[in-house]
Amino acid sequence: MPEKKHPRRGSLAYAPRKRAAKQTPRVRSWPQEDEPIPLGFAGYKAGMTHVFMIDDHPGRSTEGQEINVPVTVLEVPPVRICAVRVYGKDIEGEKALSEVWADDLSSDLSRSVRLPKNYDRQAAFENTEKLVEEGRAEDIVVIFHTQPGLSSVPKRKPELLELKIGGDSVEEKWEYCQDLLGKEVKFSEVFNEGNYADVFSITKGKGFEGPVKRWGVKVQTRKVQQARRHTGVLSPWRPSRIMRTVPMSGQEGYHQRMEYNKRILKVGEDGEEVTPEGGFLRYGEVKNDYVLLKGSVPGPTKRMVFFRKPMRKKEGVPTSPPTITYIDTSSQQGG
């Protein structure tokens, strides 16, 4: 009989498991949208609670009944559009050709980027207009920054991110971005209740961990001469090298992760509606606009979470606003 082999312990899907470059997640791909609209938003994770809602998913055994659903509460203060960037084609791909920055920039933005002292906005605007008219512009995006001072996150340094704009033509995007420059954008202008979104975040950092916790390898028997919580053998004689697939110690957590199709159950403006008695643990009160997202979200509290329009849209799922009958706001402080 052939020898039985156990399945591999630990997925190589996210290898190498190294620390994220920075705490702000990076988005590498964007969906296609016909109308000019921002394709993403940013918020801060406050905590989790649960709600009672009417199950509106067709075909389920609980359809039409009241069910208990775990939700993540995220505070989403308005973001400010501070610049418009034009991309053109280059030998190696896309290349930034021009930028137009807003006039009245926030003083807190100097904590994230060095602001120019003598900036000719009119000249930058004319140069960008010329690039669009000549057809040298391949794509137009906006640069926005968050406003953590409006939330319960204890910091003033904003995150600076690039945001894709939907639309069919560059001229259409340019006209839309001119009106958007220097203004605030709210979450309700990008997403609606019942919509789906892809979320990006940096997971909790756990530091240096061994192969048992990091890869799930088996703890060896008590008669092992050396350590028990280690890999039995690193490599054979041939090839005489350690393969990349061997589970070893290293960084655990603080990785960028993405989850597809998280449903937005509720978008509100009064944070008192979802703030539990005494506030969320390690966060406090929700002071600004908020979002109830079905299920969990990667990362600890206070960490920035980026929302993106869904890349893999589901079929046969409800997209209308759900009916929420109860939101749990009982104290989370414990006895």
Rank of each mutant, 00 (worst) to 15 (best):
7 P>A: 08
8 R>T: 13
23 Q>P: 00
39 L>K: 12
40 G>D: 10
43 G>M: 08
45 K>L: 14
52 F>S: 10
56 D>M: 09
56 D>V: 02
61 S>R: 11
63 E>L: 00
64 G>A: 06
65 Q>K: 14
68 N>H: 07
75 E>S: 09
76 V>W: 03
78 P>W: 07
78 P>H: 08
80 R>K: 15
82 C>H: 04
83 A>P: 03
87 Y>E: 05
91 I>E: 07
91 I>M: 01
93 G>C: 03
98 S>D: 08
102 A>H: 05
105 L>W: 05
109 L>Y: 06
110 S>F: 02
118 N>G: 11
119 Y>R: 12
120 D>F: 11
121 R>C: 10
126 E>N: 14
126 E>V: 13
129 E>G: 15
129 E>T: 13
131 L>Y: 14
138 E>M: 09
139 D>R: 15
140 I>Q: 12
141 V>E: 15
141 V>L: 12
143 I>Y: 09
143 I>S: 11
144 F>N: 04
144 F>Y: 14
145 H>A: 08
163 L>T: 06
171 E>N: 13
176 Y>G: 06
177 C>T: 15
177 C>E: 09
178 Q>I: 10
181 L>E: 08
182 G>F: 10
182 G>E: 06
183 K>W: 03
184 E>M: 10
188 S>I: 05
189 E>Q: 15
191 F>T: 06
196 Y>P: 04
197 A>N: 00
209 E>Q: 15
213 K>V: 00
218 K>L: 05
224 V>M: 12
225 Q>E: 13
225 Q>C: 01
227 A>D: 14
228 R>Y: 03
235 S>P: 00
238 R>V: 14
241 R>S: 09
242 I>W: 02
245 T>G: 02
248 M>Q: 14
253 G>W: 03
257 R>L: 09
262 K>F: 01
263 R>V: 07
266 K>A: 01
268 G>N: 05
270 D>K: 12
270 D>Y: 02
287 K>L: 12
289 D>W: 01
292 L>T: 03
294 K>F: 00
304 M>R: 12
308 R>L: 13
309 K>P: 00
309 K>R: 11
312 R>I: 13
313 K>V: 13
314 K>Y: 01
318 P>F: 01
319 T>Q: 03
320 S>M: 01
322 P>G: 06
322 P>C: 06
322 P>S: 07
330 S>T: 12
333 Q>C: 00
